[in-house]
Computed example of a mutant assay.
Amino acid sequence: MNIFNIFDTLQKIDGDAIGRLEHASRRTFMNRIGSTLAAAAVPTAFATVVNKAYAATPTALEVLNYALTLEYLENEFYEIGNNTANLIPAQYKAVFSQIGIHERNHVKFLVTALGANAVKKPTFDFTAKGAFPAFTDFPTFVTLSKAFEDTGVRAYKGQAGNLISEPLLLQYALQIHSVEARHASIARKILSKISGDKSIKSWITNDAGFPGDVYKGETSEGQVVQGGLNLPGIAGLENISFATITESFDEPLTMAEVLKIAGPFVVSL
Rank of each mutant, 00 (worst) to 15 (best):
I176D: 14
Q159F: 00
V224I: 14
D150Y: 01
F242M: 09
T219F: 10
E76R: 14
A55Y: 06
D16T: 15
I99Q: 02
V258N: 02
T36C: 06
V42G: 00
A55K: 05
G161R: 07
I13K: 12
P211T: 05
P252L: 04
G209Y: 01
Y215H: 09
L87W: 03
N65E: 10
A235R: 11
L10M: 15
K189H: 14
H106I: 06
T57E: 11
K193W: 09
F77P: 00
A60D: 06
A128I: 01
T244D: 15
Q98C: 07
L169M: 06
I186G: 02
T69L: 14
K260I: 08
D137W: 08
R188Q: 13
D250Q: 12
N86K: 10
I80W: 04
T205C: 09
I6V: 14
E257S: 07
F109L: 11
G217M: 07
V42T: 04
L259S: 14
L64T: 00
W203D: 11
V214T: 03
L110S: 01
A60Y: 07
T48A: 14
A45F: 05
V225H: 05
E166I: 03
Y156R: 13
E62W: 00
A24M: 15
N86P: 06
V214I: 08
A187F: 03
Q91T: 12
F141S: 01
M30P: 00
Y78S: 06
H177Y: 11
M1W: 00
W203L: 12
E149W: 05
Q159K: 02
L170R: 07
V107E: 00
T219M: 10
S25P: 07
G227F: 06
R20F: 12
T36Y: 10
G34H: 01
G19I: 07
V179Q: 12
A40R: 13
L64P: 03
T59G: 09
K157D: 09
N206M: 13
P211M: 10
A128E: 06
G115N: 08
N206D: 15
N117P: 04
F210D: 14
L144G: 00
K93V: 08
A243Q: 13
G233P: 05
P139V: 04
